[in-house]
Protein backbone atom coordinates (compact mmCIF):
# COMPACT_ATOMS: atom_id res chain seq x y z
CA UNK A 1 0.00 0.00 0.00
CA UNK A 2 1.16 3.47 -0.84
CA UNK A 3 2.80 5.42 1.97
CA UNK A 4 0.55 8.41 1.35
CA UNK A 5 -2.51 6.26 1.99
CA UNK A 6 -1.06 5.10 5.31
CA UNK A 7 -0.43 8.69 6.37
CA UNK A 8 -3.97 9.53 5.29
CA UNK A 9 -5.38 6.70 7.44
CA UNK A 10 -3.27 7.86 10.39
CA UNK A 11 -4.23 11.54 10.17
CA UNK A 12 -7.92 10.83 9.56
CA UNK A 13 -7.94 8.67 12.67
CA UNK A 14 -6.42 11.42 14.76
CA UNK A 15 -8.37 14.42 13.53
CA UNK A 16 -11.38 13.66 11.33
CA UNK A 17 -12.76 10.38 12.65
CA UNK A 18 -11.56 10.94 16.18
CA UNK A 19 -12.75 7.92 18.15
CA UNK A 20 -13.85 9.83 21.19
CA UNK A 21 -15.18 13.06 19.80
CA UNK A 22 -16.70 11.95 16.50
CA UNK A 23 -17.45 8.23 16.93
CA UNK A 24 -18.31 8.19 20.64
CA UNK A 25 -16.13 5.26 21.62
CA UNK A 26 -14.21 5.21 24.87
CA UNK A 27 -16.33 7.88 26.52
CA UNK A 28 -15.95 6.33 29.99
CA UNK A 29 -12.20 6.97 30.39
CA UNK A 30 -12.56 10.23 28.45
CA UNK A 31 -14.90 11.62 31.10
CA UNK A 32 -13.53 9.67 34.05
CA UNK A 33 -9.79 10.23 33.83
CA UNK A 34 -9.54 13.67 32.23
CA UNK A 35 -9.53 15.64 35.46
CA UNK A 36 -5.78 16.06 35.57
CA UNK A 37 -3.30 16.61 32.78
CA UNK A 38 -0.85 13.95 33.99
CA UNK A 39 -3.56 11.28 34.30
CA UNK A 40 -4.94 12.15 30.87
CA UNK A 41 -1.51 11.72 29.29
CA UNK A 42 -0.85 8.42 31.06
CA UNK A 43 -4.23 7.03 30.08
CA UNK A 44 -3.78 8.17 26.48
CA UNK A 45 -0.39 6.52 26.12
CA UNK A 46 -1.68 3.30 27.70
CA UNK A 47 -4.57 3.27 25.22
CA UNK A 48 -2.23 3.70 22.24
CA UNK A 49 -0.11 0.84 23.58
CA UNK A 50 -3.06 -1.52 24.11
CA UNK A 51 -4.64 -0.63 20.76
CA UNK A 52 -1.42 -1.44 18.90
CA UNK A 53 -0.95 -4.72 20.81
CA UNK A 54 -4.55 -5.82 20.36
CA UNK A 55 -4.56 -5.04 16.63
CA UNK A 56 -1.28 -6.89 16.20
CA UNK A 57 -2.96 -9.95 17.72
CA UNK A 58 -6.59 -9.74 16.55
CA UNK A 59 -5.85 -9.03 12.87
CA UNK A 60 -3.82 -12.25 12.33
CA UNK A 61 -6.38 -14.24 14.36
CA UNK A 62 -9.19 -13.02 12.12
CA UNK A 63 -7.28 -13.60 8.87
CA UNK A 64 -5.47 -16.85 9.62
CA UNK A 65 -7.66 -18.61 12.19
CA UNK A 66 -11.26 -17.46 11.95
CA UNK A 67 -11.69 -16.83 8.23
CA UNK A 68 -10.07 -20.02 6.84
CA UNK A 69 -12.17 -22.09 9.25
CA UNK A 70 -15.36 -20.16 8.45
CA UNK A 71 -15.68 -19.02 12.05
CA UNK A 72 -16.18 -15.34 11.25
CA UNK A 73 -19.30 -15.21 13.41
CA UNK A 74 -17.18 -15.87 16.51
CA UNK A 75 -15.37 -12.55 15.97
CA UNK A 76 -17.05 -10.70 18.84
CA UNK A 77 -16.45 -13.42 21.44
CA UNK A 78 -12.88 -14.15 20.37
CA UNK A 79 -11.82 -10.51 20.13
CA UNK A 80 -13.12 -9.50 23.53
CA UNK A 81 -11.51 -12.48 25.24
CA UNK A 82 -8.21 -12.03 23.41
CA UNK A 83 -8.08 -8.34 24.29
CA UNK A 84 -8.96 -8.95 27.94
CA UNK A 85 -6.34 -11.70 28.24
CA UNK A 86 -3.75 -9.67 26.36
CA UNK A 87 -4.07 -6.69 28.67
CA UNK A 88 -3.59 -8.89 31.71
CA UNK A 89 -0.60 -10.55 30.05
CA UNK A 90 0.98 -7.23 29.08
CA UNK A 91 0.57 -6.02 32.64
CA UNK A 92 2.31 -9.09 34.05
CA UNK A 93 5.15 -8.86 31.52
CA UNK A 94 5.68 -5.15 32.16
CA UNK A 95 5.68 -5.70 35.91
CA UNK A 96 8.34 -8.40 35.63
CA UNK A 97 10.64 -6.98 32.97
CA UNK A 98 10.15 -3.22 32.67
CA UNK A 99 9.08 -2.10 36.16
CA UNK A 100 9.66 1.58 35.35
CA UNK A 101 7.16 1.51 32.50
CA UNK A 102 4.78 -0.54 34.59
CA UNK A 103 4.88 2.10 37.28
CA UNK A 104 3.79 4.84 34.90
CA UNK A 105 1.35 2.86 32.74
CA UNK A 106 0.34 -0.03 34.99
CA UNK A 107 -2.35 1.93 36.79
CA UNK A 108 -4.22 2.56 33.59
CA UNK A 109 -3.98 -0.89 32.05
CA UNK A 110 -6.74 -2.61 34.07
CA UNK A 111 -9.01 0.35 33.41
CA UNK A 112 -8.94 -0.25 29.68
CA UNK A 113 -9.29 -4.03 29.66
CA UNK A 114 -12.60 -3.80 27.91
CA UNK A 115 -12.61 -0.21 26.74
CA UNK A 116 -15.03 -0.01 23.85
CA UNK A 117 -12.59 2.02 21.73
CA UNK A 118 -10.06 -0.84 21.84
CA UNK A 119 -12.60 -3.43 20.71
CA UNK A 120 -14.09 -0.93 18.27
CA UNK A 121 -10.80 -0.27 16.53
CA UNK A 122 -10.07 -4.00 16.24
CA UNK A 123 -13.45 -4.66 14.63
CA UNK A 124 -13.34 -1.56 12.41
CA UNK A 125 -9.97 -2.61 10.99
CA UNK A 126 -11.53 -5.85 9.79
CA UNK A 127 -14.75 -4.23 8.50
CA UNK A 128 -12.81 -1.57 6.60
CA UNK A 129 -10.79 -4.30 4.90
CA UNK A 130 -7.37 -2.92 5.88
CA UNK A 131 -4.26 -5.07 5.49
CA UNK A 132 -1.96 -5.60 8.47
CA UNK A 133 0.18 -2.47 8.03
CA UNK A 134 -2.82 -0.25 7.36
CA UNK A 135 -4.53 -1.72 10.44
CA UNK A 136 -1.54 -0.83 12.60
CA UNK A 137 -1.56 2.73 11.24
CA UNK A 138 -5.28 3.04 11.82
CA UNK A 139 -4.86 1.82 15.42
CA UNK A 140 -2.02 4.25 15.97
CA UNK A 141 -4.23 7.02 14.59
CA UNK A 142 -7.13 6.03 16.80
CA UNK A 143 -4.89 5.89 19.87
CA UNK A 144 -3.19 9.18 19.09
CA UNK A 145 -6.60 10.76 18.51
CA UNK A 146 -7.68 9.49 21.92
CA UNK A 147 -4.54 10.95 23.53
CA UNK A 148 -5.06 14.29 21.79
CA UNK A 149 -8.71 14.47 22.86
CA UNK A 150 -7.82 13.54 26.46
CA UNK A 151 -5.02 16.10 26.72
CA UNK A 152 -7.05 18.91 25.16
CA UNK A 153 -10.04 18.10 27.31
CA UNK A 154 -7.99 17.92 30.51
CA UNK A 155 -7.00 21.53 29.83
CA UNK A 156 -10.58 22.57 29.28
CA UNK A 157 -11.73 20.78 32.42
CA UNK A 158 -9.20 22.39 34.70
CA UNK A 159 -10.67 25.75 33.66
CA UNK A 160 -14.23 24.57 34.27
CA UNK A 161 -13.43 23.45 37.82
CA UNK A 162 -12.60 27.03 38.73
CA UNK A 163 -15.75 28.53 37.24
CA UNK A 164 -18.96 29.06 39.14
CA UNK A 165 -21.79 27.25 37.37
CA UNK A 166 -25.50 26.70 38.21
CA UNK A 167 -26.03 23.89 40.69
CA UNK A 168 -27.90 21.55 38.33
CA UNK A 169 -25.20 21.60 35.64
CA UNK A 170 -22.30 21.07 38.04
CA UNK A 171 -20.22 17.96 37.51
CA UNK A 172 -21.17 15.78 34.59
CA UNK A 173 -23.58 18.06 32.64
CA UNK A 174 -21.12 20.94 32.30
CA UNK A 175 -18.38 18.45 31.38
CA UNK A 176 -20.54 17.05 28.58
CA UNK A 177 -21.40 20.51 27.30
CA UNK A 178 -17.69 21.36 27.23
CA UNK A 179 -17.02 18.09 25.39
CA UNK A 180 -19.60 19.19 22.83
CA UNK A 181 -17.65 22.40 22.18
CA UNK A 182 -14.31 20.53 21.92
CA UNK A 183 -15.96 18.10 19.49
CA UNK A 184 -17.24 21.06 17.46
CA UNK A 185 -13.70 22.34 17.19
CA UNK A 186 -12.63 19.06 15.57
CA UNK A 187 -15.08 19.71 12.72
CA UNK A 188 -12.60 22.26 11.48
CA UNK A 189 -10.14 19.50 10.60
CA UNK A 190 -12.44 17.57 8.29
CA UNK A 191 -11.53 19.39 5.08
CA UNK A 192 -7.90 20.05 5.98
CA UNK A 193 -6.56 16.50 5.73
CA UNK A 194 -8.14 15.83 2.33
CA UNK A 195 -6.71 19.01 0.84
CA UNK A 196 -3.34 18.56 2.49
CA UNK A 197 -2.69 15.18 0.91
CA UNK A 198 -4.66 15.88 -2.25
CA UNK A 199 -6.92 12.87 -1.80
Amino acid sequence: MEFKVLIYILLTGVFVNNYVLQRFLGICPFLGVSKKFSQATGMGIAVIFVMLCSTAVTWPIQKYVLEPNKLGYLQTIVFILVIAALVQFVEIVLKKFIPALHKSLGVYLPLITTNCAVLGVAINNITDGYNFVASMFSSLGAGAGFLLAMVLFAGVRSRIENCPSPKSVQGLPITLIAASIVSLAFFGFSGVIDNLLGM
Binding site: Q22, V169, P173, I177, A179, S180, I181, F187
Partner: peptide, 12 residues
Protein backbone atom coordinates in the same frame (compact mmCIF):
# COMPACT_ATOMS: atom_id res chain seq x y z
CA UNK B 1 -21.31 14.48 17.28
CA UNK B 2 -21.30 17.79 19.21
CA UNK B 3 -25.10 17.74 19.39
CA UNK B 4 -24.96 14.36 21.11
CA UNK B 5 -22.78 15.63 23.94
CA UNK B 6 -24.86 18.79 24.25
CA UNK B 7 -28.27 17.10 24.41
CA UNK B 8 -26.98 14.46 26.85
CA UNK B 9 -25.50 17.15 29.09
CA UNK B 10 -28.72 19.15 29.10
CA UNK B 11 -30.85 16.06 29.77
CA UNK B 12 -28.74 15.10 32.80
Amino acid sequence: APGGFLVFGILI
